[in-house]
């Protein structure tokens, strides 16, 4: 038998698949394939300096005003989930993209693609949530559009929102301004949104239900700006979770990032659900969580301003450029890579 085993050593390699000739779900997952799609298809076609900054939104100067402009589409299933619905997401997601540009959200547009047969009650629930979320975020919903498609051509409701905001930070904010030595702050426990949605889909029930963390982030960012914190970079932790956010920054700036696993807050029910579902919380989507990268000297005061649950979870370093390394709870080290393929299809 030893001979059989040795003889067949090399029978192991299928032909490499270097390109996808059609779109797969992971192209929308926020991980590496999304990055590739942007780099190979969108950036070359739309060549524009604002787009090439590859931030959550574009920072523009119009008639002497510093504006941020962003758009996002929402295709979540189920439409209504513990802690929110697609309407909250559609407002908060776009408001948060503006906030991550250091911009006070001013107004939004909303485009609806509705599937024939959608219950009017569901639509009204979603729209009421949008109105409430817009009010909470102090943003006006000023223009919109509706299309209805044949049954089976959409999944209930798809929503697109775009938003304009006024940039309030005195200095530019983004990966290009990140410095070795900077502190990385996180505003609360991670992975609740993605876990809440997946738990509903998989029919998991917990003693205390896991609620989505969907929330507007502008007020926390505004406090940092008002207090004169020198914000180097902001990033909300949506698709692809914390790992994608820190990897994008490390790669864009060519720096290393160190994380401390023990410092990253995750609630007990979320940890339990992730264990059961086989998910790594670092890759799970959030809708009300962000990281702020600030000078180490301001870390403590910035963390206080970001909220009661905010913590420093790591730092920017000169070592291992373009790579995120996490010290595990037991004291070992591991690389935290960007999401490869998809972990949760269509979560936000």
């Amino acid at each position: 038998m030893a001979d059989t085993v040795k003889k067949d050593f090399n029978l192991s390699c299928p032909a490499p698949r270097l390109t996808n000739d059609s779109i797969v779900l992971a192209h929308g997952g926020g991980g590496k394939l999304t990055q590739q799609l942007i780099e190979r298809v969108f950036l070359p076609a739309f060549a524009d300096p604002a787009l090439e900054a590859r931030h959550d939104g574009a920072s523009l100067e119009v008639a002497g005003l510093k504006l941020a402009f962003t758009t996002d589409s929402y295709v979540v299933r189920p439409l209504i989930f513990p802690g929110g619905n697609i309407g909250d997401l559609a407002v908060n997601g776009t408001v948060n993209d503006l906030a991550m540009c250091g911009a006070r959200p001013l107004c939004l547009s909303a485009g609806f693609i509705l599937e024939e047969g959608l219950s009017m009650e569901v639509l009204e629930t979603v729209v009421a949530s949008m109105a409430k979320a817009a009010e909470a975020a102090c943003v006006r919903l000023v223009t919109g559009d509706t299309k209805v498609v044949d049954k089976g051509k959409a999944d209930g409701i798809f929503i697109n929102t775009a938003g304009i905001g006024a940039i309030q930070t005195p200095l530019p904010v983004g990966p290009a301004w990140v410095q070795p030595g900077d502190a990385i702050l996180l505003n609360g426990d991670i992975a609740a949104h993605g876990t809440a949605i997946l738990s509903v889909r998989e029919g998991l029930e917990f003693e205390s239900p896991i609620l989505s963390d969907t929330a507007p982030l502008w007020s926390a960012v505004e406090k940092l700006i008002d207090a004169g914190i020198e914000i180097h970079c902001l990033r909300d932790l949506t698709r692809g979770g914390l790992s994608s956010a820190v990897n994008e920054i490390a790669q864009a700036r060519g720096v290393g990032i160190r994380l401390d696993e023990a410092a990253i807050p995750i609630t007990e029910p979320v940890r339990g659900a992730c264990e059961i579902l086989g998910l790594d919380p670092l890759y799970v989507a959030n809708e009300g969580r962000f990281i702020a990268i600030v000078p180490a000297a301001q870390a403590e005061s910035a963390s206080t301003l970001m909220g009661p649950d905010a913590v420093q979870i790591g730092s920017v370093v000169n070592d291992h450029p373009r790579t995120v390394v996490m010290r595990s709870k037991i004291g070992g080290n591991r690389v935290v890579d960007m999401l490869s393929g998809e972990q949760l299809p269509r979560i936000c």
């Binding site: 000169n318 070592d319 291992h320 450029p321 690389v335 890579d337 490869s340």
Partner: peptide
Amino acid sequence: LYGRHREERLQP
């Protein structure tokens, strides 16, 4: 996913 830092050289 987790172990590449073991092989990578530092580039300051």
